[in-house]
Amino acid sequence: MAKEIQVTFDCADPGALAEFWAAALGYQVQGPPPGFATWPDALTAWGVPEDQWNSKSAIVDPDGKGSRIFFQRVPEGKTVKNRVHLDVRSAPGLEGDERLAALEAEAARLAPLGATKVEVREDMQSIFIVMQDPEGNEFCLD
């Protein structure tokens, strides 16, 4: 039987990175557990100090099909290239100029959210764009 997976990002600002990736992927920030109207209500009830409220966040696919993505605050900053990264499928089935135009449009949509375009690459007759999220994590528009 196949296992569900969760992708976890170590980061400095889980709330902000969750908001970025929710917008990038069409996900939503995971709401509080049943019985609580807001996360501050839940965290207060659980006795979590306010300075730790942004230590974790998660986003979920509103259709329930995609993997949950979890963000956890860590003390160290990012120092090297990611060994694992996300490919955001932004132009499936498209080729040539049409593919590049769709990828460039997605890069332009993500830039005001905090993404940075690194470069356009061509590999094995396919074009993709290397990007970075607001904390410098690499991902590709594919």
Rank of each mutant, 00 (worst) to 15 (best):
R73Y: 14
V48L: 10
P112V: 09
G35D: 03
G31C: 05
A23K: 15
R83W: 03
E122M: 08
Q6E: 15
S67V: 13
M124W: 11
D133Y: 11
L94K: 15
L25C: 06
C140G: 06
P40C: 08
S67T: 14
L17S: 08
V60L: 08
A22I: 02
V120I: 15
F70D: 14
K117F: 03
K56W: 14
G47W: 03
Q6P: 01
F36K: 07
V80F: 13
V48Q: 06
F36D: 10
G64H: 00
T38N: 07
D63M: 04
F9I: 04
F20M: 02
A18F: 03
L25I: 06
A23E: 13
P112A: 06
M131F: 12
E98A: 14
G136C: 09
S57F: 03
G26D: 04
G96C: 07
A24S: 09
D61P: 03
G66Y: 00
T8M: 15
D133Q: 12
A111P: 04
I5F: 15
L25P: 02
P49S: 09
F20D: 02
V74G: 11
P112M: 04
F128G: 09
V60D: 01
L141W: 04
G93I: 08
G93V: 10
D133W: 10
D123C: 08
Q28N: 04
R83L: 13
S126R: 15
R89Y: 09
C140W: 02
C140F: 05
C11H: 04
F20V: 11
A58C: 00
F9C: 01
H85M: 12
R121D: 01
T79S: 15
D133I: 13
L103S: 10
S90R: 05
T79G: 02
P112Q: 08
A12H: 08
F9A: 02
K78F: 07
D123H: 15
R68L: 13
P32H: 01
L113E: 00
L17K: 10
E76Y: 13
G64S: 04
P112Y: 08
Q30W: 07
M131I: 11
L110Y: 09
L141G: 10
M124V: 11
E138W: 03
V120A: 02
V80N: 12
P34V: 02
D63K: 04
A22S: 12
C140E: 02
A22R: 05
T8E: 13
N54P: 00
F70I: 14
K3D: 06
G35Y: 00
L94I: 05
A45W: 12
D41N: 06
R121L: 12
G96R: 06
